[in-house]
Nucleic acid binder design. Structure first.
Lengths: 205, 205
DNA sequence: TTTTTAAGTGACACTAGTGTCACTTTTAAT
DNA sequence: ATTAAAAGTGACACTAGTGTCACTTAAAAA
């Protein structure tokens, strides 16, 4: 079963005990920063506890270990991403949606670094971690299918070249958001250049 | 300066002592596998020693610590890559070179994961590491300039769109080689699809 | 055969992180 | 005020890795 949070709503709960020093959001936020900065291996309970200004022991009240915490964090992030994605306006034609989706992916650009963590979680001893891992791969398939539908629309409208496999198209779109902008080109120019290349290539016709 | 290797050639050396159990190439090869598989943080002398079937202590004969070993490994890899790159035929027109270079980068696709390690080496206490880090950034600039020259050629021949910044073009080219081919599309189709998108985009004209 | 010397070993003391748990603190309900 | 119970703490025993060093081994040269 799950942990009983301070804001848990249930007729069973008669007492609330003391207030928490940090919310799940605080914890996931800190986790995200740490994982984006230094990756999965460098993440430790010790560092997390010191960022949150709590004792390391208190985190064990909610998560048995690092893998469990990170798998819960990934669930939270994936959920958040998919919810926002589903809220996008799907009514326009392909060109409109293409713009909307590329802009959205750039906005959510760290989802890339987050998703890359999934395969790094080792085979776990605890059920909660294994459950989360299988749910995460479902989410991944869900996301892939959404994007596949989008590509399908492009093919139907004869905007997208039919001989290029969907996997390549989606791979390109997702990978390009991770290009490091070392030279600090302004975001607007950066995004529009990438849209231009994805749409019509680098070459003059 | 440096360590005296078993195959060191010098009039000073009168005796060779025992043969080494592993060459630098063995060591760098193992290091590469480990870093590509699990990243910088997960790399330990303990694991490396057990892969090489030697005692951990013997590695300290050649490298003071992990940072030093990895910085030496990166020097070796960068050197190897740049040498091969310089050997490419630079005589053809832009289209010919474009094909040659994309194919080459795909062949050397793990250079990407290797180069990404550079900024992860922390500020070091030892001179050898700091020297290597500054040499590595020189190599990086060198590499960047080579590719810049290539883009320049494309612009002169009016093949490449002039309004797209070089940083975006190079970023695109380098990033696309890292797209994971999850669905196992045959290499030839994969590469030609990516070339097609880079050159003329995903859209029908 | 003996000597020299680099290569390699494994034990030692050390550090950073883990997971646990008896204990203290805080709060809401009685 | 008292009490129940979750939140939080810090000390403990443990594990995995680090860096060092006196020692053993092997091979080339004398």
């Amino acid at each position: 079963m799950g942990v009983m949070y301070y804001n848990y709503v249930s007729s069973e709960v008669k007492e609330m005990a003391r207030e928490r020093k940090y919310t799940d959001e605080d914890l996931f936020q800190a986790t995200k920063q740490m994982i984006i900065a230094d990756g999965y291996e460098a993440f430790t309970f010790s560092k997390l506890a010191s960022v949150l200004n709590v004792s390391r022991g208190s985190i064990y009240k909610y998560y048995e270990n690092k893998d469990e915490l990170i798998s819960e964090f990934l669930m939270y992030e994936m959920n958040r991403f998919l919810k926002k994605f589903n809220d996008l306006d799907k009514s326009g034609d392909f060109q409109t949606q293409f713009d909307l989706i590329i802009d959205f992916i750039f906005e959510q650009s760290n989802i890339h670094q987050v998703v890359e963590i999934i395969p790094q979680i080792p085979i776990s001893t605890t059920k909660r971690v294994e459950d989360n891992k299988s749910k995460l791969s479902e989410y991944y398939v869900d996301m892939y299918e959404q994007f596949q539908g989008f590509i399908e629309l492009g093919r139907q409208e004869n905007v997208i070249k039919n001989h290029i496999p969907t996997a390549v198209l989606l791979g390109m779109i997702f990978q390009t958001i991770a290009i490091p902008n070392h030279f600090g080109i302004p975001q607007a120019e950066w995004v529009s250049s990438i849209k231009e290349i994805l749409s019509h290539g680098m070459f003059e016709k």
